[in-house]
Design a protein around this nucleic acid. Structure first.
Length: 825
RNA sequence: GCGGGAGUGGCGAAAUUGGCAGACGCACCAGACUUAGGAUCUGGCGGGCAACCGUAAGGGUUCAAGUCCCUUCUCCCGCACCA
């Protein structure tokens, strides 16, 4: 009776055994090269989805492959477990966030176990547990002490009806998601990290990351948004300084008006007590209450209002009106802009709408201006109407000359501006790491001393549907004493953005149980940086930028020795069904648990790796999953074939000088599979082609078994190689079959095989005979023929005139092992 | 609008350095075994009767183009008035 592939029994058996043997536990080991492979840790929403399965399958192949190649591999897993969903569950279902999160983690951990992943679970990290967030708080204090954490007023979304702060995601069409009331902007004191201090380094060091996709680097580059320009100080008629930022100072003689952001402090000052005051205030109010999204939408109608004041252009003393508009942002530059309608399309539209004058200062032809400019001119050319700078090329000479002029006269200076803003980390929420700050009436904002950490989240809180932070409902949390002077003091009520927790977890994995420090530097030095980071592209900007920022800050403090956390980054594509992302609302979700139950984890893993290369989106296909299941069955039957047992048991050492043609053919398949799988995993992460190489090898072994004479040594080599190559992809099946082949040790501790180049050598190859690039014939020739040999062979061939059809031969191009192209006329 | 990526059989895809397009798999078709087949095995499978034609469309370079260059189109992702 043939053995049946009982995946359930096999997978459970080996998962249990691996756990008992602590097979995936690692320590620092100076004898071996280290390799740190990391998948982005999940938010414990309750259930694994296919995106997770894909992410962890990829990571697991890399981890197992590197282990088999002699590396000491760190492959950890944990939980990004603070965040809003837990709090919402508390409000909706009355279950405490801690309990809800814990149960979700338990369930997802069980699901991860059922996938047979090679994690060192002794290093599990959970960001919502005090032994982790203690160090998140400690890190906050380090940043605070370095002046990198500071407080300032910032606008938040506020629902006046619910009297609560809303996250951006809770604002729907400008209204509160709960009650629909129009959301207002409210200024609150909030904590920030000074990411802007690191803008230039975050930008420059992208060049040190050749192992990152260009796409991600470009996204980060754009997000940092460096631009070089000038800050020029205009003055109002009344003498107030009004600095502006421009990248086009070459057009400064063309200024015909100025624009301020509605929030600009000068707006109120300049209009107070004038006839413009009321209208301006109304305009400002209207713009302020627009959501950030609406406000920055490109199709937003440009609105503007003259505020009754004038500014003086420092370069020519010209008096120009000051306006306010909805498209100038207070957060970028200085919140004030010069309007040059002739050479900026936005300014051109604005001037046209409000009938403002246009002065041409750049022309395509030297010294020749237009009577009137009917359309914006944004190209380069020659300066005109620009005083002493006339007739210069606007760039680069004109630009440089005007910059020098302005700096000489102290009217402004060259500056670099970034779009990157400081990172707002305050959340008016409960389920996050409390910000470890105490407000003392005497001493001000005082960090909680290290020996008093962690600042624990209180449990005596209420979860109300009004949306106010539950932390504020605790009768015990807020009141404390000042660590400095011992007087009564109040605790900070805000918690940290969960992105703070996930900005350093890769370091905690290096030393997860440390009670004395966030991590031991020696251990971090051993493991860091992460050799391969794998995750969804949706984290391309925020998470990856914050993690890079943290690493740089810690580097500057001497706590780590690397300046970049992730040497190589793989961004995986989405898992789709019927062309769109799996989602509950679309009802096209395929549950990993159901698939594992029906076909086993090995099949699920194999399919998800085989169906597409990892960066590309992957279309789920039920029958293709069955195909992978059939393939594993085929492998199972092949290795278990009773007929081969004696042959393999009695096999002599492989004698490569005494092989039949069939022996050589199957060995070629085996060794080229080793070559291809090795290269596909290590150089390209193309697991799909690696798997197809294994499939071809299986086909070749089956073909070999039909031969009259089978060499036991060759068959043994083939079967063992197959199991080893399959081990990273289908770990349970490989382990089972390795045992079936008579081994008592784990296949996952086995050494990866190297291919024998001699086994790849072909004696004969089929080449194509082309006429003018079209294949006319094929012939079998010795593989070692040189180009000259080929030329002779073809020219002297009996079919030569048949091929050429009697036409004139212009030339013959022989390509060894490939083809011969005969060019005729 | 700007930036990035993609477009190859009925489908997922492969072609790694310019060298025989479609490996591998799914679906489908035929056959074998079988009481039976949604198991397994064997064979076929881009289009066309053929000469030939085929990698989004058009042009170019080359002995040779899916691959290089130019033009255009479509789709996906990111950013979105950044002065």
């Amino acid at each position: 009776m043939e053995k049946k592939y009982n995946f359930k029994a096999i997978e459970e058996k080996w998962q249990k055994k691996w756990e008992q043997d602590d097979l995936y536990h690692v320590c620092e080991d100076s004898e071996k090269p280290k390799y740190y492979v990391l998948e982005m840790f999940p938010y414990p929403s309750g259930n694994l989805h296919m995106g997770h399965v894909r992410n962890y399958s990829i990571g697991d192949v890399v981890a197992r492959f590197k282990t088999m190649n002699g590396y000491n591999v760190l492959h950890p897993m944990g939980w990004d477990s603070f965040g809003l969903p837990a709090e919402n569950a508390a409000i909706k279902r009355g279950v405490e966030p801690a309990k809800w999160t814990k149960e979700n983690i338990a369930n997802m951990r069980r699901q991860l176990h059922s996938m047979g992943l090679s994690y060192d679970w002794d290093r599990e990290v959970t960001t919502c547990l005090p032994d982790y967030y203690k160090w998140t708080q400690w890190l906050f204090i380090q940043l605070f002490n370095k002046g990198l954490a500071y407080k300032k007023k910032a606008a938040v979304n506020f629902c006046p009806s619910c009297a609560t702060v809303l996250a951006n995601e809770q604002v729907v069409d400008g209204g509160c998601e709960r009650c629909g009331t129009l959301v207002e902007k409210k200024d609150l004191e909030q904590w920030f990290f000074k990411t802007t201090d690191y803008a230039q380094r975050l930008l420059d060091d992208l060049e040190k990351l050749p192992g990152w996709p260009d796409k991600v680097k470009t996204m980060q580059e754009n997000w940092i948004g460096r631009s070089e320009g000038m800050e020029v100080i205009f003055h109002t008629e009344q003498g107030d300084e009004m600095p502006i930022f421009t990248t086009r100072v070459d057009t400064i003689f063309g200024v015909t008006y100025m624009v301020l952001a509605p929030e600009h402090p000068l707006v109120e000052k300049l209009t107070k007590g004038t006839v413009y005051e009321k209208d301006v205030a109304a305009f400002v109010n209207k713009v302020k209450n627009m959501s950030q999204i609406d406000r920055t939408a490109t199709d937003l109608e440009k609105e503007g209002l003259f505020i009754g004041a004038y500014a003086i252009n420092p370069v020519n003393g010209k008096k120009v009106p000051i306006w306010i508009t909805n498209y100038v942002l207070m957060e970028y530059g200085t919140g004030a802009v010069m309007g040059v309608p002739a050479h900026d399309s936005r300014d051109f539209d604005f001037a046209a709408k409000f009938n403002l004058p246009v002065i041409e200062v750049i022309t395509p032809e030297k010294g020749v201006g237009h009577e009137t400019l009917t359309e914006v001119y944004e190209e380069d050319g020659y300066l005109i109407n620009s005083g002493e700078f006339d007739c210069m090329a606007n760039r680069p000479e004109g630009m440089a000359a005007i910059m020098d002029f302005i700096e000489e006269k102290n009217m402004g200076k060259r500056v670099v501006n970034y779009r990157l803003r400081d990172w707002l980390i305050s959340r008016q929420r409960y389920w996050g790491a409390p910000i470890p700050i105490v407000y003392c009436p005497k001493c001000g904002a005082v960090p909680v001393p290290e020996d008093q950490l962690p600042v624990l989240l209180p449990t005596d809180v209420e979860f109300k549907s009004t949306g106010e932070s539950p932390l504020t409902t605790s009768p015990t949390f807020g009141e404390t004493v000042c660590p400095h002077c011992g007087e009564k003091a109040k605790r900070e009520m805000d918690t940290m953005d969960t992105f703070v927790c996930s900005s350093w977890y890769y370091l905690r994995y290096c030393d997860p149980l440390n009670k004395e420090q966030a991590f031991d530097k020696k251990k971090a030095d051993y493991w860091m940086n992460v050799d391969q980071y794998i995750g969804g592209v949706e984290h391309a900007i925020l998470h990856l930028m914050y993690a890079r920022f943290f690493t740089k800050v810690l580097y500057d403090m001497g706590l780590v020795s690397v300046e970049e956390p992730f040497a190589n980054l793989l961004t995986q594509g989405m898992v789709l069904k019927e062309g769109s992302k799996m989602s509950k609302s679309k009802g096209n979700v395929v549950s990993p648990e159901a698939i594992i139950d029906k076909f086993g984890a090995d099949t699920a893993r194999l399919f998800i790796l085989f169906a597409a290369p990892p960066e590309r989106d992957l279309e789920w296909n039920d029958s293709a999953v069955e195909g992978c299941y059939r393939f594993l069955n085929r492998v199972y039957r092949l290795i278990n074939d009773e007929a081969d047992k004696d042959l393999i048991a009695n096999a002599q050492a492989l004698d490569s000088t005494a092989l039949t043609k069939a022996d050589k053919t199957v060995r070629r398949a085996v060794h080229s599979a080793i070559k291809r799988v090795t290269e596909d995993i290590s150089d390209r992460f193309n697991f799909n082609t690696a798997i197809s190489a294994i499939m071809e090898m299986v086909n070749a072994i089956y073909a070999y078994k039909n031969e009259a004479a089978i060499n036991g040594a060759v068959l043994k080599e083939a079967k063992e190689t197959l199991v080893i190559l399959l081990a990273p992809f289908a770990p349970h099946m490989a382990e089972e079959l390795w045992q079936e082949l008579g081994y008592m040790t784990s296949v996952h501790k086995e050494s990866w095989r190297t291919f024998d180049p001699d086994a790849l050598v072909l004696e004969e190859v089929e080449i194509a005979i082309q006429i003018n690039g079209k294949v006319k014939d094929r012939m079998l020739v010795a593989a070692d023929l040189t180009a000259d040999d080929l030329l002779d062979l073809v020219q002297g061939h009996e079919k030569f005139t048949e091929w050429t059809g009697g036409k004139t031969v212009v030339k013959i191009v022989p390509i060894p092992k490939k083809l011969v192209n005969i060019v005729v006329k």
